[in-house]
Design a protein around this nucleic acid. Structure first.
Lengths: 218, 218
DNA sequence: CCAGTATTTATACGCTTGCATAATTAGAGC
DNA sequence: GCTCTAATTATGCAAGCGTATAAATACTGG
């Protein structure tokens, strides 16, 4: 008769996609709470209720997991912004308005997102693969923004040549990024909606059109 | 007769300030080249041509050294921007112009600076001491900017009440931060001076005044 | 219900890390 | 030139890291 001296952790088998998602989610939790350095394989495994060895079964190396997590964050923010567009009215100016305010409010403007983003950005300079991942995300965002800007300009009968819309996209992207940063880092010193409001006002000034009321062109 | 079996590293005693500066400089090198994770006490000591133990003689803990390095970076950027102000003409609008372009050009807009900044920002959320250091730097920068904005507005006879200048400072700070970010991350895809130019144009639009030519008020 | 396999656990190894502490030495002051 | 002390080196340690690999187990298809 054999006594059960040690008990092995019971477990359930999960689909590959589910596990990957869980592991990425656990990684994001770690980074958000304790910085990139706090995202150790053991801590990640603990949060995912899994043993450390399993991580390597799904991700060849820890850096692969980290990279996947980065892409997940960026993708999530992109999707959230796109969702706001889906629910926006059909008017081009209203769509640009919705896009901007979505990026400057919850859940995109969140300290956790910034921690994640900053931790990864710090690696961009050293890791070429991360650099590629980042550039793609940045250009994708800016292109989407530029399209919105063009349509908004055309809607009020303003010229919208590529040379100008590119410049506008660069500037407005900067406004969004900058305000997003400020809000993530010190959201408590701003009134609710103040940053989104500030962003809209600044963007209206840059484009020379109104985004809220009717009638922008003279 | 005693043979010299092992040779001990020869060294010179240095002043406390000099050593601290050297150690901070070595830290910044490490972070810039290989990210925050690459800044280990041993690597830092190597670059400073010193043994690892000495670090603890000047900084109680590694985090203290990291924090000091962060403050040094921010301070350096602040000083460089202030230098640009010193050499600027006395006209308020020219001074704001100089401040903006200085922050959006070399040596402030540099990938290394971003790596350092991002690495540290990633810690802000987890480490209260870093959070304090950051907030002080941020508010200091914004206050300086707000003062420049007020003077520029007054110079052209525009109203410059605190409620408005604060908003302007928030927006323009965002423009500068956002463009600085873009330039640091992907400076190669922009023409020389393009970002500074874009920034000036956007800021002029936000304030409704010209910063280059004479005569801004109607 | 049984076998086979993909998934998961468990264990261990080698390395690096930050930090402590003892031994040494350069340089200042008398 | 001697002495004393503060600055520096050298050595070691315990903890935590990522990764490798073998053993165990839950599920799938027949």
């Amino acid at each position: 008769m054999k006594t059960q001296t040690v008990t092995r952790k019971s477990f359930r088998r999960e689909g590959e996609d589910k596990r990957r998602e869980d592991l990425i989610a656990a990684t994001l939790e770690c980074v958000a709470e304790r910085g990139l350095a706090g995202a150790t394989v053991r801590e990640i495994a603990l949060r995912a209720d899994v043993t450390a060895g399993l991580i390597r079964y799904y991700f060849p190396t820890k850096d692969d997991l980290i990279g996947a997590a980065y892409r997940a964050v960026m993708n999530r923010m992109t999707v959230q912004a796109s969702d706001a567009l889906q629910n926006a009215p059909n008017d081009p100016r209203a769509r640009l308005y919705a896009f901007v305010t979505a990026n400057l409010g919850q859940p995109i403007m969140d300290p956790n997102n910034l921690s994640l983003w900053a931790g990864f950005i710090g690696l961009v300079h050293a890791d070429p693969a991360m650099a590629v991942a980042h550039r793609e995300g940045y250009l994708g965002f800016r292109d989407e923004l530029e399209a919105l800007i063009r349509e908004a300009l055309l809607a009020v009968g303003k010229p919208a040549e590529a040379i100008h819309t590119r410049r506008h996209a660069i500037a407005i992207n900067a406004i969004i990024d900058g305000l997003w940063l400020e809000g993530c880092l010190a959201g408590d010193i701003f009134a609710d909606g103040e940053l989104a409001d500030t962003g809209i006002t600044a963007i209206e000034a840059v484009l020379g059109i109104s985004l809220k009321a009717e009638g922008g062109a003279p």
